[in-house]
């Protein structure tokens, strides 16, 4: 069964494009990634699902029900973490969470304390005294408090330190094991790869494709930066799978896709000042993978 079904969803803000003909569906029980650069339309899609905004055309259903018409009913079973978390500044964390709980029937409020302990959050602090990361934790707890069947996370990890991100991922996985479906939006590929089974990729307001994370990992690009002294034979690194090779003063940049051991072999015997192997940004992946593919598809 599909928990979310989006059909040709379009939103224009006046003449300004929000999203155009977005369609994809999320199956029950999966952790579905929704990935795209900033401003691609992730939040717009999510906000339309939650009927915070009204789509210009197209439709979306959640649990098989139209999400504008039955919005309030559907939202009983949705937990949502907005990308920008702001809560009533003068309230205490505890008050905000109790206020949040008061909107649902039969909430187990003991979960406030247990979730706060897992997330290491002080319930007695005032919201305006919290750091951004701690506000995010408040958001996470209010999203999970009522044990929703569908969890919608919009850029959830911003502001969380790596350790807390780990804890958060474990929390999400645990909720998922209990049966919750998760829609996870992000602009960071690696975190989506860690958590999700399938992903929809959105760019400039349209869905580029929906694919399995395994297929995506075949296109696992790494970004290399080599700092060296003196002269280096650039051609030495120009092996299969290397793209975008550029030399910039005493450093060499390239993207590499393929067996990492082959690259390690090439690096042996080189005198380097520094070596950086990074996850390329989504934009870079789009540039070197999706756009290229589009060109190949239409010669």
């Amino acid at each position: 069964m599909n928990v979310i079904e989006i059909n040709q969803l379009t939103k224009y803000y006046g003449k300004h494009r929000g999203i155009e003909n977005v369609s994809f569906s999320v199956e029950e029980g999966e952790i579905f990634g929704f990935i795209g650069p900033n401003g691609a339309g992730k939040s717009t899609t999510i906000r339309a699902l939650l009927s915070l905004i009204h789509p210009t055309s197209g439709s979306a259903t959640i649990f098989g029900k139209d999400c504008i018409k039955y919005g309030s009913e559907i939202r009983r079973d949705i937990g949502y973490l907005p990308s920008e978390v702001f809560y009533y500044e003068h309230m205490k964390v505890k008050e905000v969470l109790n206020y949040s709980a008061s909107f649902y029937d039969n909430v187990d409020t003991s979960r406030i304390a247990s979730l706060a302990e897992v997330m290491n959050l002080d319930l007695n602090k005032r919201i305006d005294d919290l750091s951004y990361g701690n506000k995010k934790k408040v958001g996470i707890i209010q999203g999970l408090l009522h044990e929703p069947r569908l969890i919608i996370l919009d850029e959830p990890t911003g502001g969380l330190d790596p350790l807390m991100q780990q804890t958060f991922f474990e929390l999400i996985r645990a909720e998922n094991k209990k049966g919750a479906t998760v829609l996870f939006s992000s602009h960071i590929l690696s975190e989506v790869q860690k958590l999700c089974g399938r992903v929809a990729i959105i760019k400039d307001g349209t869905i580029v494709r929906v694919e399995n994370i395994r297929d995506m990992q075949k296109h696992n690009y790494k970004k290399f930066t080599l700092d060296y002294k003196g002269v280096m034979d650039v051609q030495h690194f120009n092996l299969e799978g290397v793209t975008n090779l550029t030399v910039n003063e005493n450093s060499l940049h390239f993207l590499f896709k393929g067996d990492i051991n082959r690259m390690v072999e090439r690096l042996q015997g080189q005198y380097l000042l520094n070596l950086l192997v990074e996850e390329p940004s989504l934009e870079e992946i789009f540039m070197h993978y999706y756009q290229k593919e589009e060109k190949e598809a239409q010669p």
């Binding site: 915070l52 920008e84 809560y87 500044e89 909107f103 649902y104």
Partner: peptide
């Protein structure tokens, strides 16, 4: 104004409520 709309209006309530 306070950027809390995403909080209240994603609760299971209609806007008039």
């Amino acid at each position: 104004r306070d950027h809390c709309a995403d909080f209240v209006y994603t609760k299971p309530v209609r806007r008039f409520q």
